[in-house]
Amino acid sequence: MNKKLWAAMFLLGLLGLLAGCSKKENTNEEQTTSPSSEMKPAANATPIDPATAASVSGTVTFGGAAPKAQKIDMSQDAACKGNNVAETVVVNDGKLANVFVYVKDGLGNRTFDVPKDSVAIDQKGCRYHPHVLGVMTGQNIEIRNDDETTHNIHPTPKDNREWNESQPPKAAAIEKNFAREEVMLPVKCNQHPWMKMYVNVVKTPFYAVTGEDGKYEIKGLPPGDYTLAFVQEKMGEQTQKVTLAAKDSKTVDQSFKQ
C-alpha cells in the first residue's frame, strides 16, 4: 500500500474521530425552572396528585454462593489507605447492594423538574463514594476529594460528553452534570486504576440504589403500569412489570444470579 493511501486513511480516521467527538459534545439540556428533590411539580413539569401517589419497594437478592470479593492492591500510592476489596458484586447475607432500580417504562411523556439539590461524589480512601449513583439529567453533581493525593475523575460515557479532570487534595469541588440519559455510565481514575464507580442518569426522579441490605424504595409514582429495571454493573439488567393503583404500596423483589 503506498504512502499516500496510508496518509489518506489516517486523515480519514482522524476526521471520523473528530466527528465522533463533536457528536458527543454537550448539548446542555439543563432546566431552569424551580426544581425540587421532592418532585413537586412546577410550571413546565407534569403535575402528580400527591393524594394518589403510590410507591414500590423491595429487596434485591443474589442467588447462590456469593462470589469472593477481589482484593485491591493500593501500594502504588502511600496516601491510599482503607478497605482493599473491590465492589463489583457486594453481597451481604444474600442481599445484593449497589443495584440501580428505576422506572424504565410507563411514565409516557411526563416531564419532571431537575432537582435543585446537588448529589455528591466523594473520593475517600482512594475509592468513590457512593459506588453507584443515580442522578437526573442536568442535575448538579458535586465531586470532592477528601484524600491526601491527587485524583483524576474521568467518566467514559457512550451518550454523554467525555471529560477528564484532575483534583488535588483540598481542591475546590468540581461541579458537573450529564445532559443525556445513560445507565451505568462508568467513571474512573487513571491515577488509581482500581477506582471505579457508575453514574446512572435518568429523566425521572423515580429511581433508587439498593443499600447494603439489598433494599430499595421508589415513592411518589402516579397510578399506572410500569416496567421496573434492576441494573447491576456486572450482571446487567433485569426487568419486572408492576401495576400501581392510587396510593398503592407494592413490593417487587428481584434476584440476580451469576
Binding site: 483524576n152 474521568h154 477528564n164 484532575s166 487513571n190 491515577q191 486504576p193
Partner: peptide
Amino acid sequence: DAGLSVPDWPTSF
C-alpha cells in the same frame, strides 16, 4: 491504564 492520569498536554498539570 495510566494514559489519562495527566489530563493535559503539552503541559503536565
